[in-house]
Each structure stands twice: as C-alpha cells, then as structure tokens.
Design a protein around this nucleic acid. Structure first.
Lengths: 210, 210
DNA sequence: GTCTATACAGCGATAGAC
DNA sequence: GTCTATCGCTGTATAGAC
C-alpha cells in the first residue's frame, strides 16, 4: 500500500505550488477557462514568475499528465499470476482515487487532447496495457473454473471490453450525478459487472464484498 | 421510421446554414476553439451578419441543443407495453445515430455545461426519463420470465444503471478507438450487456441478432 | 527567482451605412 | 439582411530591471 505524504502548501517550492494549484483549478473551472494569469494571481506570484518555471500552459498540463501516469504505474499490484477478490477490489479502488485526483484527463479529455495530441497517445497506451492486464486476469479465473460454462467465449471477451469501457468513462458518468456517486460507488459498480458471468458459488462470494 | 430529408447547403436559409455549419465545426474542432468569426468565414458571410441572426455563441449552442432534444423525442418508439427484440435494437441504433450527430453534447459536455448550465439540467432530465423507460422494459421482461431466476433484484437494478451509463458514455469511449468503432458497434455493445442476465432460451435468441 | 511592463493576437459584441 | 469598421477586453508570451 502506498503512503501519500500530506504536505502543506507553504512547504512546497514555487514550481510545486504551481503544479498543485493548476491541478485544482483545472479540475474545478476547466482547462479552457483557467489562464496563467489566474494561477499566478491565486498563488500570489507574478505571471512572469510563473512563466519562468513553466514557459507555457501546455508545459503545466504535460507535467500534470506525467505525474498522473507515474502515480498509476506506482499503484500497480497485479503480478500476473495471483489476485484474490479483496486484493482486486482494493487495487481498483486505489486506481479510481488517483483517477479522481486527475479527473481533468477524463472529464476534459477532448480539450486537452486537442492542445496536446501526445496525451491522447499516452491515454490510449495506458488502456491498452490495462486491457492486457484484465485479459490475463480473466484467463486465470477461467482456468480456475470461476466462470459459468454456458457463456460463450466472445461474451467473455465482451466482459473485458466492458471493463475497460467503465474505467474510461465513470468520471464522465459521475458528472450526471453531482452529489451522490463517489469513487467507491464506481469501484463497486465495476465489480458488479462481473457477477452474472461467474458461477453460482463464486458469485455469492463476490456479492458479499459489495 | 423517421425519414430524414437530405438538403443541399445552398437550399437553406442563412439562419439554418449557421446552425448546420456550427454543428459540424463544434463537433470537429471543439466549442472552445470555434469562434463566431470562424463560422462566418467558413460560410462566406460577415461576422456582423452572423450576429444579426444569433446575438452570441451561446444562442447557437442553445439552438443546437433544442434541435437535439427535439430529434431524440421524435425518435421515441417504446409505447410502454410491448417492445420486441428487433424493435428494441433498431430503436437503440436510431438513438445512437442522433447522439453521434450531436456528439458535442457528450464529448464536450463539461465545456458546454459551464457555458450554459441549463443544458446540463436538460441532459440530466433526458436520462432520468430514459432510465424510467428502461425500468419499465425490465419490468415487462421480468414478468414474461425472460430473466434468470438466480439473479438478485439489486443486480437487476444494476443492469438498468449500467444501461444508462453506457448510453451516456459510449461517445466518450469511442474517442479511444479513433477508427474502429461506430454507432452500430456500441448499439451491439449495449445489447450484449443484457445477455448474461437472460435465461438460456432468451439469451440464445438475442445472441442471433449480434 | 521574482518582479513590472509591454507586445501582439484574437475574442465577443456593437454601431452605422447600404 | 448584409456589410465594414471598430471598441474593449483578455489571452499567451517575452524583455529587462532587481
């Protein structure tokens, strides 16, 4: 389990402060509405100073994306061979919390991808590797006999696609439920999509966790 | 089945041309990047003329949203009592094609909602009514014994949530597959999510359509 | 590292002539 | 209905002093 250090804003360097404040403001008010003037003003520094650290707005966005990918990679738990139900759920939840922190990359992806096409490539890449992870996992569960026998192979492939679909889209769907739905809600949601594919015994066991 | 008339651009009034061109350009280049200047230039009219018809950019967006809602409402087919499998699939597909035409409201919703909060309310409202529709449909299928008996009631409710989730999010997920995936693909995708909840006989029948 | 000052382009929107 | 011209504002980015 990774430990996140809680750091006070005034302990950060100016460069780090810019990143932290940018993330918060982009998430809340939108990348297209937040200018380098806004960020500088909010931090009580000059715009010139901000541009000394980051020559332009895209450089800030690229740094944020780099940080996001780094955190996601650091949170990988599945070693390719074994993954019990609880571990799987907790790993999913951890990933969802990181995604929530960097939700601009999911809720504002069109805006960001148009500004920086490389970020789109990075996202596509990320989900390709996630899809392989999930296919491995399905393969393990299959060989352990946890799936129903009357489900066709193509339908099991569909399950993998649906899994990735949900991970990519939950922060978008969350927008339609302003208050109600947290990362926990969608982690359980993702989990639930597996249930009807499992055999009766496994399904009962999984349902307990929810 | 609704008939869409194919109309040449030069048969439209200036006011209609503005709407058609705006839709195309917003979809392709993003609402935040397309200005009234761009639209006017592309149409070969002056910016002043454009502002005569639509006093500001938001007025164009509101009109587009109004048109979208009108088309969706006109395409409603489910009468609340009967809906066979083929009808259901074709109705889904028709809805998906309309959504694809107006994809800005799904792929750029954060940008648009921040500009015009009423559009968010309209979207939330739309999906609330769609959710009720789907719950009615599930109720019918349930009473006809088409669902598996060993699936819990809460899991059936989950199916309804997942259904709405997919409708809201497929155009977002589509972004990750630039070439491959069409409205047809996601209509089938949506359809497939029902399969493991159905009893064996019904599942086989549904699977034929895919 | 941090500041002030400024250049320059592009935005939304309006006025007024035809 | 359509045009040209223009205002005021805000955006990114840079130069140069401390």
């Amino acid at each position: 389990m990774q430990i996140y250090r809680l750091v006070q804003m005034n302990q950060l360097s100016t460069k780090e402060k810019i990143i932290a404040k940018s993330l918060a403001m982009f998430n809340e008010y939108g990348v297209e509405n937040i200018t380098t003037r806004h960020i500088a003003k909010e931090l009580g520094i000059s715009q010139g100073n901000l541009h000394y650290h980051y020559p332009n707005k895209n450089e800030i966005l690229s740094t944020l994306f780099h940080n996001f990918i780094h955190q996601i990679k650091s949170a990988e738990r599945f070693n390719g061979t074994e993954f019990n139900t609880i571990e799987m759920y907790e790993s999913m939840l951890e990933n969802f919390r990181i995604m929530d922190n960097y939700r601009l990359f999911f809720q504002q992806n069109e805006v960001i991808w148009r500004r920086i096409p490389e970020i789109k490539n990075g996202m596509v890449q990320l989900f390709l590797s996630k899809k392989n992870e999930i296919l491995d996992l399905i393969h393990i569960y299959k060989s352990e006999g946890k799936f129903r026998q009357d489900i066709s192979a193509s339908q099991i492939d569909f399950l993998a696609e649906q899994f990735i679909f949900t991970i990519q889209s939950w922060l978008m769907a969350k927008n339609y439920h302003p208050q109600g739905h947290s990362a926990e809600h969608y982690a359980k949601f993702l989990f639930r999509s597996w249930l009807p594919y499992l055999n009766n015994e496994t399904m009962k066991k999984w349902e307990e966790i929810l």
